[in-house]
């Protein structure tokens, strides 16, 4: 609860803050709080990813991007009422959606009765890997991880293609 309150405070700070450097630092703090919350939920692998990617890597990349731009947020030209409306409606829809979810850590929830018993029970015997997260990620759901890796590859290729063309244009 403390964590969630702190995260809410940080979110408000991000929205209120006009200095982009401070926003980046607050974003990093938010990611670390998120990682702590994930540790509290026993999702250590995800917490590790959140800490290294969310708090570390994106902060560094945003700071590098900040070097290329000005440090202060520009005042919006119009009052962003339509985006506000869209955000509120989507937020309300998401909250409405959570009502239909099974209660937290309910053992009879659909997600725990489908393939999870097999993963948890047979993973060590079938794959010889004690960490179920690794065996699910790399073996049972190998196709998904291949897709994920391809997504990372495509993102990298896209960034290379975008930024490199700019540089060539400059030379002309």
């Amino acid at each position: 609860m403390t964590l969630l309150t702190m995260m809410a405070v940080v979110t408000v700070a991000i929205v209120a803050q006009r200095n982009l450097f401070a926003v980046v630092v607050f974003g990093s703090i938010y990611s670390f709080l998120m990682a702590t919350a994930l540790v509290a939920l026993d999702a250590v692998d995800v917490a590790m990813t959140e800490a290294s990617v969310g708090a570390g890597m994106s902060t560094v990349l945003l700071l590098a991007a900040l070097h290329l731009t000005r440090g202060d947020e520009v005042k919006p030209l119009r009052r962003p009422l339509l985006p506000m409306l869209v955000a509120v409606v989507i937020g309300a829809a998401l909250v409405y959606g959570t009502i239909g979810l099974p209660a937290f850590s309910d053992p009879q929830a659909a997600i725990h009765t489908h393939v999870v018993p097999r993963y948890l029970g047979d993973s060590l015997r079938e794959t010889g890997v004690p960490n179920v997260v690794t065996s699910v990620l790399a073996s049972y759901r190998g196709y998904d991880t291949l897709g994920e890796t391809t997504v990372v590859f495509t993102a990298g290729a896209g960034v290379i293609a975008l930024l490199r063309r700019r540089r060539r244009e400059k030379k002309k």
Binding site: D45, M48, T49, S52, V129, P130, N131, V133, A138
Partner: peptide
């Protein structure tokens, strides 16, 4: 394989 972590985290 034994503790938290894996390729993604190690790469980062």
């Amino acid at each position: 394989d034994f503790g938290p972590g894996g390729g993604f985290q190690a790469g980062v």
